[in-house]
Computed example of a mutant assay.
Amino acid sequence: MFIVSLTYISEISQIDKYLEAHVEYLDKNYEKGVFIASGRKVPRNGGVILAKARNLSELEEVLNDDPFKIHNLAHYELIEFVPTKSAPEFASLIQ
């Protein structure tokens, strides 16, 4: 499992220009079962995605389709972790 931390490297006006396409990209990957949760950082200087991928290269392929990445609007930090405990409603995430 991965935490993807996006930090905007562009003006919010540029982010907003591609926001609808980014949301469509997110929706596509929720349907595929790759993304588990996502949302904006507070303050609004980026976002976070919780992703399930077999390995780092698979996740990088998915992220390469993000309009924010295609248009060089954000920096991506990828943190891999192995969940070993969870609240009961998230037990399916334990590997």
Rank of each mutant, 00 (worst) to 15 (best):
F35K: 12
S57R: 10
I79R: 11
I70P: 01
F81I: 07
F35V: 05
P43K: 04
L73M: 06
I70C: 01
N64W: 00
D65I: 01
A74L: 12
I79M: 11
L78R: 14
L63F: 08
P83S: 13
N64K: 11
V82S: 13
A53L: 00
A37P: 04
F35I: 09
S57N: 15
E80R: 15
N29P: 03
D27Q: 14
I70A: 00
L63I: 02
V23K: 09
D27R: 15
K52A: 12
F68W: 09
L50Y: 04
A74T: 08
K32V: 02
G33K: 10
I49W: 03
E60T: 02
D65Q: 04
A74N: 06
E60D: 09
E61W: 08
T84R: 15
A74R: 02
P67G: 09
G39A: 06
K32S: 07
V34D: 05
R40P: 07
L56V: 01
A37R: 05
E60V: 03
F81N: 12
R40Y: 12
G33T: 13
A74Q: 06
N72W: 08
D66G: 04
P67K: 14
Y25T: 00
V23L: 15
G46H: 06
D27H: 11
H75C: 10
E58T: 00
L78T: 13
E77C: 10
V82H: 15
F68C: 03
V34K: 12
K41W: 01
G33V: 13
F68R: 07
G39M: 05
K52C: 09
A37S: 15
Y30E: 05
F81P: 08
S38G: 06
E80Y: 13
L56I: 04
I36Q: 14
L26P: 01
F68Y: 14
P83Y: 15
L78Q: 10
H75P: 00
F81D: 11
D27Y: 07
G33C: 10
I70L: 11
P43N: 06
K41I: 06
L78N: 08
R44T: 04
N72C: 01
N45V: 04
V34W: 06
Y30P: 02
H71K: 10
N72F: 09
R44K: 13
E80F: 05
R54N: 15
L78M: 14
E24F: 01
R54S: 14
F68K: 04
F35Q: 11
A74E: 08
V23G: 00
A51D: 07
E80S: 14
A53T: 01
G47A: 05
D65V: 03
R54D: 15
D66H: 06
E77R: 14
F68A: 04
A37M: 14
I79E: 10
G33R: 13
K52I: 11
H75A: 15
R40C: 02
R54M: 09
D27A: 12
Y30D: 05
D66A: 03
D66K: 02
N45W: 01
I36K: 15
K52H: 12
Y76D: 07
H75T: 09
E24S: 04
G39P: 04
E61Q: 12
S57M: 07
S38E: 06
